[in-house]
């Protein structure tokens, strides 16, 4: 296996000791903005050639057709203290320096322990021989490919696109029409969330039905 140098996004501001700090890549899903268009699901499948049966991101609706209906897209949250990384016996799941939880399909043995550890249902087990790999897990790559030569045929086949190496954000966040799903460095994402909270008010109203349709 050709191990390649991974391309990592860095923060613009210098860190302590004048060193360049790697970014801390994150998703944030704004339930006030998500309209359940499914654009993120389609963009993900299109960008990564995700086979049927795997949903690296999916839009979930609760209280459908009732007052208080809420939609939310659920991708891998790329946790800092990721349970999947903790339980993986072969260390196939790991943190990249930029915080993306990546999966090495070469070392994965397909035991499914991560599937049960994850609260979001991010690691999934493909039915059949998807992605040219026999019986190994599949998960959201944050459109960062895998531990292969960037843009190589092999990376494309095993993991899908590598938009991070191209300097782009994940496909799902890029296509989100209402900017409900935002991606990027944690500091930037936190700033956007903070601005939105200031603009529309926090508290119960920010999350409930009243703010949009109430008196």
């Amino acid at each position: 296996m050709a191990q390649a140098q991974v391309t990592i996004p860095y923060r613009e501001a210098d860190g302590p000791q004048g060193k360049k700090e790697p970014a801390r890549m994150k998703f944030y899903v704004d339930v006030k903005r998500c309209i359940e268009c499914g654009g993120c699901e389609v963009a993900c499948k299109n960008e990564n050639n995700v086979p049927p049966g795997i949903a690296r991101i999916r839009v979930v609706t609760i209280n459908e057709g009732e007052p208080g209906e809420t939609n939310v897209a659920v991708p891998c949250m790329h946790c800092s203290k990721a349970p999947c990384v903790a339980v993986c016996p072969v260390d196939a799941l790991y943190h990249r320096p930029d915080g993306i939880v990546a999966l090495n399909k070469e070392t994965c043995i397909g035991c499914g322990y991560c599937l049960y550890a994850c609260p979001f249902g991010a690691p999934q087990f493909p039915k059949g021989s998807a992605f040219g790999a026999r019986g190994v897990m599949d998960k959201c790559t944050y459109c960062a490919g895998g531990p292969e030569v960037a843009f190589s045929e092999r990376e494309r086949r095993l993991y899908g696109a590598n938009r991070i190496a191209e300097g782009k954000l994940p496909a799902c966040a890029s296509v989100c029409a209402t900017k409900a799903l935002i991606a990027g460095d944690a500091e930037e994402v936190a700033n956007v969330v903070r601005q939105r909270m200031v603009a529309r008010g926090a508290g119960g109203g920010a999350w409930g039905w009243e703010a949009a349709y109430g008196k």
Partner: peptide, 13 residues
Amino acid sequence: LIFPPSMWPVPGI
């Protein structure tokens, strides 16, 4: 997963 997602265990946010 209890709503809102701000209750989800996403460290940093």
